[in-house]
Design a protein around this nucleic acid. Structure first.
Lengths: 97, 97
DNA sequence: TAGAGTAGTTTATAATATAAACCAAATTAT
DNA sequence: ATAATTTGGTTTATATTATAAACTACTCTA
């Protein structure tokens, strides 16, 4: 009935980041920051966690002279997200018996 | 895009409790404990929080000689749950553009 | 070259979840 | 009768987590 929810994804900000990356394939740090409304510090920490879990890939490049942190979802991340959504459904689908 | 998620509901156990109560209208502590797989301590704390927020009603009665804690969802709780689900959709519906 | 802006990271703190320890009453075993 | 066990919880201590504040480094502009 109530399957456990991946704690890495059951977090408002990390879920938003994952959701965004699934839609966009690839996104830069400032864009994610703007879209999620997160502070840079918080976002940095959560991106690290997703990256450490292998759910996203982080590439640090340069855009001219400015640093540019690019994030991309990984197949493992996509799978985890799908499983999370599937598990979550058990909590949301109210079987009005 | 990413609406804030009610932190009271964005918790695995509390969400399970709410989901259960919406389906059953009324449930006893041991039943909720069994269905959610939670420990009694954890469940007690989370029920208190939902109750303090006015999301559920807790009635302490007796069943013969044994204490019996009955939980029921409130209209405010139902509304909060529905809003939570609505907000959550923004995170789950991946607009594969 | 001083000040402001951009792009982040590190770290300290506050909030949260969770289980362990505990309490009280009832039931069962000796 | 009384000791152990079970039932039905609550309280409290701890571990984890989320979050913002403080910081670093580099660039751009006046």
């Amino acid at each position: 009935m109530f399957k456990p929810l991946d704690p890495l994804l059951h977090s408002e900000l990390r879920l938003a980041v994952m959701s965004l990356l699934i839609s966009t394939e690839e996104a830069e740090f400032p864009y994610i920051k703007e879209q999620t409304g997160a502070t840079a510090g918080n976002l940095s920490v959560q991106i690290d966690k997703l990256s450490a879990a292998g759910y996203i890939e982080v590439e640090k490049t340069f855009k001219g002279k400015k640093p540019c942190t690019l994030c991309r979802i990984t197949p493992a991340g996509l799978k985890a997200f799908e499983e999370y959504v599937e598990s979550l459904k058990g909590y949301l689908e109210v079987t009005s018996k």
